[in-house]
Amino acid sequence: MMRKFFSIVCKSLAGMFVYLITLFAFLAEQQSDGKLAMLAVIAACGIVAMLAGLALSGFAQWRRDTGIVLLAATGFTAFLVLCMACVFSSDEVMKFMPPGSVDMFDSYLTGVAVLLGFAVLGGWLLRQARSRSANPA
């Protein structure tokens, strides 16, 4: 029972790291070395957390669990980005923001590419898990 609990905690932590990666992918690329280093550290932490969660569950259903983590994190990030875009598009809100405060999130192409990449990978893993459970070898 405790193994399952800690497995879920580790997988949730991995989801938080995936969320951070997808969110930080939208950051401006003025200092790309710092951004890449930060993303690499966050990715390493996320991989370690996911592997710990999978190890605690005996790597049973690893495709399904990893796909769920990736899709949940990318879905949450997409929702957050959409909400922030709606908020920042309002002239009323922008009156209260300091000038240039939105400029730090201007790497839309990279952000959307990373978001879609993780979502496609998560969906593919879920599909693989479903096809394996339907056709056990």
Rank of each mutant, 00 (worst) to 15 (best):
M1C: 00
M1W: 00
K4F: 10
F5Q: 13
I8N: 09
K11A: 07
S12K: 01
L13H: 02
L13S: 04
G15F: 03
M16A: 12
F17E: 02
L20H: 05
L23P: 00
F24H: 13
F24G: 04
A25P: 02
A28N: 13
A28V: 14
E29K: 10
Q30A: 10
Q30N: 12
L36Q: 05
A37D: 03
G46P: 07
G46N: 10
A49R: 01
A49W: 01
L51R: 05
A52W: 14
L54E: 11
L56G: 05
S57E: 12
G58W: 03
A60M: 09
A60R: 14
Q61D: 14
R63P: 02
R64A: 09
G67V: 06
I68C: 03
L71G: 02
A72E: 08
A72Q: 07
T74I: 09
T74P: 03
L80N: 08
L80C: 03
F88S: 11
V93T: 02
V93A: 04
K95N: 06
K95G: 01
K95A: 11
M97A: 06
P98S: 05
P99D: 12
D103T: 07
F105P: 00
F105C: 01
T110M: 10
G111H: 02
V112S: 06
A113C: 10
V114K: 02
L116V: 15
L116K: 04
A119E: 15
V120F: 15
V120L: 15
L121T: 13
G122F: 04
W124D: 04
L125I: 08
L125F: 14
R127D: 11
S133P: 00
P136A: 10
A137D: 09
